[in-house]
Write a protein that binds this DNA or RNA. Structure first.
Lengths: 229, 229
DNA sequence: GACAGGCCATTGGTGACACCAATGACTTGC
DNA sequence: GCAAGTCATTGGTGTCACCAATGGCCTGTC
């Protein structure tokens, strides 16, 4: 708590209480109050406030103080905001919207990976898919999860589009959140294993269309399972 | 620029020089140097540094100073980072990756809008599309651009997914960047007008599949025009 | 030559200050 | 009684001086 943490602790606390709706939009804060509340000097309260302002959670105006902004102006794509929302009462909605974002992005990312991935990445993908089958059939969920995350991260990062790559972290959060929330079957369904193998095969073979289709199948099923519209 | 701007001016300057590659990754900075460079106190230099750290552009460590990070750790989805990159030498790449992101997201957003948009939004979309046809055929590019931006923003914001909505700003930047860079035909092609009308019609009719297809046609053509792979 | 220990540059954190803009109450005049 | 202008108060903005902590680097010893 002492060394690399004073700001982040206060920032996390404030960020969480805003994104959770605990402190309502329009609520005025003051640096004085923030400092006193968290036992911290005005200077660090100011720095925290700047960060929050950068995330679009608050807006600072002279004389009036720091006002909490409504969700429309939040930087909802920022990893910190996503994390806070995943930890708060908005978790379900956040999980749904993130899954929809995955549905949009991951197929294209897979197509990109089929075009741009390095030979080593292609090898690793194939390797991961076969390991996933082994672990999946033995039912070791946490090991399986690690491979799953690694695979999606690899695809996103090697898609040739850094904007896709920037989503690797939050996809990892979604995947791990899903299994820890018990939204996954006790043992991965065979179709999922097939599809992951197909993605790896298509990327390795440099077949963008097949990679895109296989990835679309993966996230399409996930989405269908999560959101019964 | 005058009153509410001291640290944001410095932030912009630093952010631009880092994202442009002007100061290379690994370069060490000190608060002292930043402050002196921009004629600003150490305190505001610290606040700027925190912001940059929050964007993943730098990492601050004791004794060693502030080191510039490589692009992999940037928050490339943050609007400020996107803006800086659009203004710098990375503009072409940024335009390409943003367009690819639009290609991924906007069709799904249109489908979402067909499900969730308010009656007023549906009306406004239809209205916008017809106005776009009129203006498009008369060739008023700047007026046309405003309507185009408004239409894409409406679709994204009413998609029922705030993560999509958060992209409205950068899509506007891409659209306006494209016309100002002369990447657009002098007069909008009739197909584009048809497709925009079709998106509006499908959303108004609550037909997600049709809305998705029409929007995919729009961004698909744009993408094909921009990136001859 | 490797390891241990200390030095010190540089960030982390605090408190106090002057400054200024916005606000809302207060005053003034009609 | 009401409207318009005035002005003190409030709270962010920016600066400064100071001390604490830490970790890279140098030095010295074995």
């Amino acid at each position: 708590m002492s060394s690399p943490a004073l700001h982040s602790a206060v920032l996390d606390a404030l960020g969480r209480s805003i994104t959770s709706g605990d402190v309502a939009p329009g609520t005025p804060l003051t640096l004085e109050a923030i400092g006193a509340e968290h036992g911290v000097s005005r200077t660090v309260a100011r720095e925290v406030m700047r960060l929050l302002e950068g995330l679009g959670l608050v807006r600072s105006r002279r004389r009036v103080g720091i006002v909490v902004l409504p969700m429309e102006s939040w930087n909802v794509l920022d990893p910190r905001v996503i994390r806070w929302r995943l930890e708060g009462p908005g978790r379900d909605r956040q999980l749904r919207t993130l899954t929809e974002l995955r549905h949009a992005v991951e197929p294209l990312a897979a197509a990109g990976a089929a075009r741009h991935a390095s030979p080593e990445t292609r090898d690793e993908l194939v390797d991961l898919a076969t390991k996933m089958r082994v672990l999946g059939e033995h039912g070791d969920l946490t090991e399986f999860l690690a491979l799953d995350i690694r695979m999606h991260e690899l695809v996103l990062r090697s898609s040739g589009n850094e904007l896709f790559g920037a989503l690797a972290g939050v996809v990892a959060a979604v995947l791990s959140g899903r299994t820890h929330l018990g939204l996954m079957p006790a043992s991965p369904v065979p179709e999922a294993l097939d599809q992951h193998e197909e993605v790896a095969r298509a990327v390795a073979a440099g077949d963008p269309a097949a990679a895109e289709a296989a990835m679309a199948a993966i996230v399409g099923e996930v989405r269908r399972a999560l959101t019964e519209d």
